[in-house]
């Protein structure tokens, strides 16, 4: 019981602190790479607090759904963070990949409907593009997680951070699944080359266009939510890599996850600086790679059996 409480406490602390910290690291790295001084690492925390204190400017056209959606989608993601072993420790509540995928879908539906509620061209455009990409992202995630589940021979997500066989050298199942999730995460967290998080040119937006009308406390929730999504997905990718390396002890896993996550965040910053954004109609081609990776991972996992 006490171990459970300690685990719960660590995960909760990470949920509260890590997402915004990672965003801070990402922004700081990016500005260093661009030879700018840039904001402090803790700037996102100050931004968050400032936004929660501000009063909101809301469109006249919006209704209760628009006002409630940030709470609903953040709740879905908080549950996601509590059922997924993204921190390297077993999740406090045992979930499985179906729950994982549909919680992400719930958050997506809430933000899509809220975007349509604004009655503007941008909201509809963002919701439409995000849904179009989701039809490739969702199978990728399901198949990659299924490959992991089959490899470990257990359907719960927690099996991912407690490698039962610990064989290591998984014949490419784990690296391929990790790569697939990483590509899917680029869409889910709107990073390059899918979407340019620094621009505010509306026509190039996908995810950003959906949250254009938010301000004040609701904007704070929405931004924290996308940071949390990034943290959970990168943490999940780390579990696949750590399983490949057959690392078992909890302390090694937690610190390994932390290191890998920061490495991925730095990589994202590098890509932000050096890559160009793809034309959005080319994106399905890129995502097909992710789907192909996860399919091959599944094939290998199934053959290995």
């Amino acid at each position: 019981m006490s171990i459970y409480l300690v685990r719960m406490a660590i995960v909760t602390c990470e949920i509260v602190l890590l997402p915004l910290l990672l965003i801070g690291i990402l922004r700081a790295t990016r500005s260093r790479l661009q030879k700018r001084k840039g904001p402090r690492i803790f700037q996102p925390f100050y931004d968050f607090m400032r936004l929660t204190r501000k009063s909101a400017v809301v469109s006249e056209e919006t209704g209760p759904l628009f006002r409630g959606a940030p709470a609903a989608s953040l709740a879905a993601l908080l549950i996601l963070a509590l059922v997924t072993p993204w921190s390297g420790l077993a999740a406090p509540i045992s979930g499985d990949l179906v729950l994982f995928v549909f919680l992400l879908a719930a958050a997506r539906m809430a933000s899509g409907l809220a975007a349509l509620d604004t009655g503007t061209a941008f909201g509809g455009l963002g919701a439409s593009r995000e849904s179009a990409l989701s039809i490739l992202v969702e199978p990728t995630l399901v198949l990659a997680l299924a490959a992991g589940a089959i490899y470990e021979g257990n359907l719960t997500l927690n099996a991912l951070c407690q490698p039962a066989n610990g064989r290591g050298g998984s014949a490419y199942v784990m690296p391929l699944a990790a790569a697939a999730i990483w590509l899917a995460a680029a869409v889910e967290t709107s990073r390059m080359p899918v979407e340019d998080p620094t621009t505010h040119l509306e026509l190039t937006m996908i995810h950003e266009a959906q949250m254009l009308e938010y301000s004040g406390p609701r904007l704070a929730l929405v931004e924290y939510q996308s940071a949390l999504k990034l943290t959970v997905l990168y943490g999940l990718i780390s579990q696949f890599i750590l399983n490949e390396m057959a690392i078992k002890s909890s302390i090694a896993r937690v610190s390994g996850t932390f290191g890998l996550t920061i490495a991925m965040v730095v990589a994202a910053a590098v890509m932000d600086v050096f890559l160009v954004r793809l034309h959005w109609r080319k994106l399905p081609d890129l995502l097909t790679f992710g789907l192909a990776f996860s399919l091959v991972a599944c094939l290998l996992a199934a053959l290995r059996g």
């Binding site: 997506r108 349509l116 509620d117 039809i135 199978p139 299924a146 490959a147 789907l291 599944c298 094939l299």
Partner: peptide
């Protein structure tokens, strides 16, 4: 496994139709 991927593709498409249906009729 292939069936699983196929079903999730159908599920994602179904969600798109749902957002479209609900959003276009009741929102905006």
């Amino acid at each position: 496994l292939l069936l699983l991927g196929w079903l999730s593709l159908v599920g994602a498409l179904a969600m798109t139709t749902c957002i479209r249906f609900t959003g276009v009729i009741f929102l905006g």
